[in-house]
C-alpha cells in the first residue's frame, strides 16, 4: 500500500452567524494510490468538507488545522497508464504552472518522502450543502510551487449537480477543451480533439453534435457524463466524486457508477467516492470510511464494514438500508 495522501488530525471550522462550527474534528486517514475509497455519512457529517479539503477547495473563511501530505507515487501498475500529473511524477515539460522557483527535477524526489504539505487553498465564499459554490469562487493557489496538487489538473472533481457545475452559456466542447488547453499545454484544435475523444470515452451519444450543444440541451445523466469528461480531461491522479449520482434516478445512477469504475480502472486513477448511500459505496469501493459529526467513526475494507462493522453507528446505517431483500416494514393487515 502506497499512500497518495496522508491526512493527519485534520480539523475544519466555519464561522456561521458569529459562532464557530466544527465541520471536521481530527480526521486521520490515508488515501492509498490506486484505490477506490468511499467516504460515507449523513447530511452534515462533514463528508463534503473532507472532499473539499483534500481537493484544496475550501473557502477562505474556513479555519483549517492538521496536515495533508502528498507523496510522489511509485511507478506501480496503478499509475502506469496514467497521463503525466504532478502527483506521482511531475512532467518537467509542462510550463503552465505559475512557479515561484524552478521545478525540482523529478528524479530528486524520494519515494515516500512527503512531496508537499498542503497549504489548503483559500477562497472566498460561504459553504453550503452543495459544494459547487466553492469552485466558482476558487482562487488558484500558487503557494508551494509545483508539487502541490492542483485542482482541475491533478485532482478531478465531480459535483452532485452538473447543472450548477457546468457553464450554461458555454458549449460542452469548449468546457472540456478548456481544461485540456489550460492544463495540458494543448493548442485549441488539439484541445477540441481531446474533448471529442473524452465525450466518446464517457459514452455520450453523438459526441460530434454534443460538442456544439449547451448543457440545457442534455439530460441530467448526460450532463453528469460531460462533467466527468471535464473532470478527467487533464488526466488527474485523483478523482473525487461528491454525491455525483445522488440527483439521478436508479438506472442512470447505475450507468454513471459503471462509467466511473471503468474510467478509474483505465486511467489508473485513485477514486474518492463521497456518498450517503452505504450500499452504493459498497458496490464501488474497496475501502469505506464512515464519517459522523465531523469524526471518523471507522474505516476498513468494504467486506469488513458491511459484514462485521465495529461501530454501532455503522450498524445503524446498515440496518436502515432498505434493499430489495430487506424485511418489509409493512405489517400485512387487510386493508
Amino acid at each position: 500500500m502506497t499512500a497518495l495522501a496522508e491526512i493527519r488530525d485534520l480539523s475544519v471550522r466555519f464561522i456561521s452567524d458569529g459562532s464557530k462550527v466544527a465541520a471536521l474534528k481530527g480526521i486521520s486517514l490515508d488515501v492509498v494510490a490506486g484505490e477506490c475509497l468511499a467516504i460515507i455519512g449523513e447530511s452534515g457529517s462533514g463528508k463534503s468538507t473532507l472532499a473539499l479539503a483534500i481537493a484544496g477547495l475550501l473557502p477562505g473563511s474556513a479555519k483549517i488545522e492538521g496536515s495533508i501530505d502528498w507523496f510522489q507515487g511509485t511507478t506501480g501498475e496503478a499509475s502506469a497508464k496514467a497521463p503525466p500529473s504532478a502527483l506521482p511524477g511531475i512532467s518537467p515539460s509542462r510550463g503552465e504552472i505559475e512557479l515561484s522557483s524552478p521545478p525540482s527535477p523529478i528524479t530528486g524526489i524520494v519515494e515516500r518522502a512527503p512531496a508537499a504539505r498542503l497549504p489548503i487553498s483559500s477562497l472566498e465564499g460561504e459553504m453550503s450543502g452543495r459544494t459547487e459554490g466553492g469552485v466558482t469562487e476558487r482562487q488558484p493557489s500558487t503557494i508551494g510551487a509545483s508539487r502541490i496538487p492542483l485542482p482541475g489538473r491533478d485532482i478531478g472533481f465531480v459535483f452532485q449537480d452538473p447543472s450548477a457545475s457546468l457553464d450554461p452559456v458555454m458549449t460542452i466542447g469548449k468546457q472540456i477543451a478548456e481544461v485540456a488547453h489550460t492544463h495540458l499545454d494543448l493548442d485549441w484544435p488539439q484541445a477540441y480533439a481531446k474533448a471529442k475523444h473524452l465525450l466518446q470515452r464517457v459514452r455520450l451519444p453523438y459526441p460530434g453534435s454534443a460538442m456544439r450543444a449547451f448543457p440545457h440541451q442534455l439530460s441530467g445523466g448526460q450532463k453528469q457524463r460531460v462533467a466527468i469528461a471535464a473532470a478527467i480531461a487533464a488526466g488527474p491522479k485523483l478523482l473525487i466524486a461528491d454525491e455525483a449520482t445522488s440527483a439521478l434516478d436508479t438506472i442512470v445512477q447505475a450507468e454513471i457508477v459503471a462509467l466511473i469504475r471503468q474510467l478509474v480502472a483505465e486511467d489508473g486513477m485513485t477514486l474518492l467516492f463521497i456518498s450517503h448511500d452505504i450500499a452504493l459505496a459498497a458496490e464501488l469501493a474497496e475501502r469505506i470510511a464512515v464519517i459522523r459529526h465531523g469524526e471518523l467513526v471507522e474505516i476498513g475494507m468494504t467486506a469488513e464494514i458491511v459484514t462485521a462493522p465495529r461501530h454501532p453507528y455503522t450498524r445503524t446505517l446498515l440496518e436502515a438500508h432498505l434493499g430489495l431483500d430487506a424485511s418489509p416494514l409493512l405489517r400485512r393487515t387487510p386493508a
Partner: peptide, 28 residues
Amino acid sequence: ARAVIDAPQSAIGKALVAAAPRLNSTRP
C-alpha cells in the same frame, strides 16, 4: 409490491431491480 419487485416481468421493472444498489450479497 413484493411480488412485482421480487420477479419483475417488464423491461423497465427488470432494469430498475438490476440497478438498485445492493450490500454485499454474502452479508448474513
